[in-house]
Each structure stands twice: as C-alpha cells, then as structure tokens.
Design a protein around this nucleic acid. Sequence first.
DNA 1: TTGTACGCGTTATCAA
DNA 2: TTGATAACGCGTACAA
Lengths: 326, 326
Amino acid sequence: MARPTISDVSRAAGVSIKTVSRVLNNERYVGAATRARVEAAVAALRFRPSTAARALAGGRSHQIGLLCDNPSPFYIHQMQLGVRDRCVKAGVRMIAQPYDRHGGDVLDEVEALIDTTGIDGLILTPPVSDHDAVLDRLRERDIAFVRVSPRDRPTLSPSVRIDNAAAATAMARHLHDLGHRRIGYVGGDPSFAASAQRLAGFLAVAGDDRWVREGDYSFGAGARAAAELLALADPPTAIFAANDEMAAGVLATAHRLDLAVPGRLSVAGFGDDVIASLVWPPLTTVRQPTRDLGYQAADLLLGDGAEQHRELPFALVARASTGPAF
Amino acid sequence: MARPTISDVSRAAGVSIKTVSRVLNNERYVGAATRARVEAAVAALRFRPSTAARALAGGRSHQIGLLCDNPSPFYIHQMQLGVRDRCVKAGVRMIAQPYDRHGGDVLDEVEALIDTTGIDGLILTPPVSDHDAVLDRLRERDIAFVRVSPRDRPTLSPSVRIDNAAAATAMARHLHDLGHRRIGYVGGDPSFAASAQRLAGFLAVAGDDRWVREGDYSFGAGARAAAELLALADPPTAIFAANDEMAAGVLATAHRLDLAVPGRLSVAGFGDDVIASLVWPPLTTVRQPTRDLGYQAADLLLGDGAEQHRELPFALVARASTGPAF
DNA sequence: TTGTACGCGTTATCAA
DNA sequence: TTGATAACGCGTACAA
C-alpha cells in the first residue's frame, strides 16, 4: 500500500482536492460538515501531506532549522528537545543542524540548508547568533530567524536570553554572603557573548580582577586555572567558573590539593545543572533553563511575529558544600 | 537575487536542463567538456538543487533520518556528529529526530517522518533498534534502515555494534586482576539490549550475582544501589556500573560514606568517557566509540548495500584510582 | 462555500 | 551524448 495523496483523500471524502487542502491548512470557508468528512478521510487513510510538494507549490516548507554548537552536549540536547516540542505542536518539522564552530564554513552551511531544504525560518544559538556574515545573509535573503542569547544588534531579530550578568552577580553575592572575601573566577570562551556578560556581572560584586583567570569552557581550563589561583600567596576561598564543566575541573584540582572538603575551597558553576550534581562535592550553580529557551525561541519563530524579545529567569541552586571557607 | 534554478544554470552553461541534471546526479553519458562547463556554471551561480523538487520528481529525497533517544546526551550528540559527517560527504541531509521513548508514539513519529520528508533511509539507535512494530513497518514500506546495537533479528537489516559482553568481561577481569574478589554490579535499563549483554559479560567473570543490583542508567539508581551494596555484611571492594552516570552515583554514595579514597572502594563505568573524567576520583571505564558507530552506520546506509554488519572495538581506559582495595 | 486550471523545480522517459 | 516533454503532489489564483 503506497502512500496516500490528497487526491485519494478527496475521492474518499467526496470533495475536491482543493477542499482537502483547505482543511489541511486550516483555511476559512469550509463547511463544518465538509470539514468533518475530510478529517475523517484523512484519519482513515493516515494521510500526511508531502513536505516536498507543499514546499514546491506553496513556498512554505513547514520546516525550520536549528543551528547548534556548544561546549555542552546537554545544552544542545535540551535546546533540541525544547524546539522540537513546539514544532510538533505547530505541525512543523525541526531540522536540527549540529555544526562545528571551528572547522567548516558556517555561512556556506547555512546557505546550503536554506537552498536545499527551503526552511521557513531558523533558530540560531551562540556563537552563530552573533555571526555577522550569517546574520546579514539571512536578512538579504529575507529568512525569518530568532537568536538565542545574542550579544549585538538587538533590533535585528527577535531573541530570547537570560540575564547572564545578573546571574553572575547573584552567584558572586551569594558567595560573598557566605563569608567569602577572596573569590576566584574562571572565564569562558570569549567567542560566546555570555562569557563577557558573566564576567561583568561577577566584577560588579568582586570589584577587582586579581583572581580572575581565562578559560575556554573546558574541564582542562578549569583545572589549570584553579592550580594557578590556588598557588597564590593569598589564594581564593571560593572559585566561580563560567560553566559547570570548568567547575568540575576546578574541583579536580581541589581534590588533588586536598582542598575539596567542607570548610575549605567552595566551587560554583553555571550551566544546565547536570554535571553540577554528578560531581563531588555537588556544585552550587546558576541554572540556565535551556529547554525553556528552546520553547521560547520556537514560539517566537512560529508565532505571529508581534513579540520581539523574551528574557527568562535563571535559578541559583545552592548546595550544602558551598558553605563558608576560612 | 533569488535562488537560482536548474534552468538558470542551463542557460549559463548553454546546455539543456536535463544535461545539468545529469551532471548533478553523476550520471554517465556526459561529455567531459560539457560536464566542466556545467560545473563551472553551478559554482558561479552557487546553485544548489531543491530537495523538494528532487523528492517530488525523482523519488529520492537525498535525506536520511536519525532516530535517537538515550540516557546520555553525549551519546546522542556524538552519534549526530558522526552521522552528519558522512552525510555531508555524501551530499545527503541528516534529519536528526530526537524522540522520547517514554511519552509519545514512536511508530507514529516514524511514519510521519517518512511520509512528510520522504527520507531515503533511517538510522535507528537503541531502544528503537529493537522496536518490532517500527521494524516491521519499515520492512513493509520498504524503507532502508541500519540499526545501531540491535539485540534481535540480526538478519533484518545491516547493523553496527560493539561487543558489550566482551567489554563487560574485560572490565570485570581487569578489576579481578587488580585483586578485587567481591565486585558489585549495577545494571542498566532493561529496555536497552546493551544492558543484558553487559550483565552477561560481567557474570562470565563474577560467577554469581550476589552483588548485582538493578539500575536504570540514572545517577540516582547508581547512588541507591551503592548504598545497598555497601551496607552488606561483606560489601564489594569494587563496583562496576553499566554506565558512567550510574558510576558517578556510586561515587557520590562512596563519598558520603568516606570510601572514595584510594585503597578503598574502586568504581568503574561504561560509556563515552566524558562523565568518567569529570568526577573524582576519575573512573575507569569501558569507552564506547559512539561517533565511530555513527560513521559506520551512515556508511552502511549510504553505501552500496553489500556489507551487512560491523563490529567496532571498545577501549578499556584504566585510571589510577581503581587500584586494589582491601 | 466549493471547484478548475496552472505552475513550483526537478527527474524520468523517450526520441534525436 | 544530448534534448524535449511529461510527470511528481500540492498550493495559488480565479471562477463558479
């Protein structure tokens, strides 16, 4: 039994092809009885319209793209799940496109995606959300897009974000409130907008950058930065890393130096709270609601286009072992 | 400047539309000079064929699906990257479809995927690789598919796998060689074929199942099983968990009981070796070459169909802290 | 409220 | 080795 087509449905329902099409696309001017008969036929034949034919005839492909690369697979996964959920509800297919921000030509990939699939819109996550060449091309080609956590050009497109600076400030203040006065900070990959925002938020509390070190969101970077910080004459009593993976690295170094015990070094992170709860002692983290970012981004892209920007709340998840250290 | 079409290319190259099509599809019977001229025009216009039109006219969509759900986002991510790489090389688009093995109707999702996108083939990862209803439907509809790590029906389709039993045996033997005589085991979600295979491999060395406990691949399951095992009158001196996340859970319990120090409890896992290196002490793991599984699966699907099955090697990554415990 | 005719961009068929 | 023409399955424009 081959795949049914609209004309099969129209025959079964005793109406014209066009009427079936109207029902499928929720157009007005269809009698209730007619609509019911068509819907019954669609269900009976398990008919599903061909994306290819729709794209060719109508100019809409009912597909959207999701461009993702991130140091954390958790981030990518949650983002995919969030976007996917809303796509399913909207009857649109998500084309998740993992890409490599180091190798490869992103601009070319994006154009290939647009040209071959005919996607109706695109969701960009960092760091493509600030890739000017890509953004400009999307504008030229008049492709709708939503950016997740962009740094620049706020009016260019709808976007969703969390307030990274405020989140980092909240964590720094939390550590300060616990009694910490020398707080170390391990920064993230500067190609991500979030990195600078988090650092700024941290400095708003810390004041100076004596205990600030560079990182790149990798475990190794966290471990190395911690080694450097803890070798100082006046080492920090707490270290806040710009993501959970680096925080795990900090913790590994702390273990090596026998400092990973309650009352000694406190370690905090920022992220999806997955790694945070796997390591020991469990990290205190600023939890980023990644899946919600996906929901909101998809909603903005699939919605009526009226709304422009959404900011989501973050959560500070404090855990026992981050208590005062002296 | 709108997207160029074949007819733009044919005009630029001074040949017919059909000839351009021949070049694009690597068909025979195209003169070398003609081919060169067409290729030049394609490059100049940055032409890329529309998937929609190709699918409609030719019956091939140049798209394949990848159906993934897994307790580990690392697994999903690596699998997507592996499959994607080979798809790019083959000029085929990967439609990565994260699905939810608990909620939702997988069979329906698969059919929707096939009907709407017209994919030419499908890669199934556990646990769909053993979902009989899905497999039967794919056969009925004559959709090519490759399974990753299937348990049953070996002749049904090409497949790629690792020898889970041998891997678990290797780890058990490793622990035994280190001097461990009471080795605990935390099993995985029974809906995954790998779980039974790994348990069998473990038992081949361990002999009896006194220290075997059930798990579901979650951190909490590992933590609970470890608490149970370590409360026994004759507790294990090492615990081997069926994945790294449960191993991290075991470790958390060990920390709570002050056993996570060299010379006390040794903990081993199985997985992508990412969590393994984030926790402390670092786990000894059997590393599963997930990205390679993706490469091979895609190669089998996109290849000439001659080869049927491939088995990939695993690696035992031993780390310092898994030494003898007495 | 419903139906008819046409075209979207590509591949398949068949002829040259 | 090349080219003309008819599909593919659906949405759009317009007529009824």
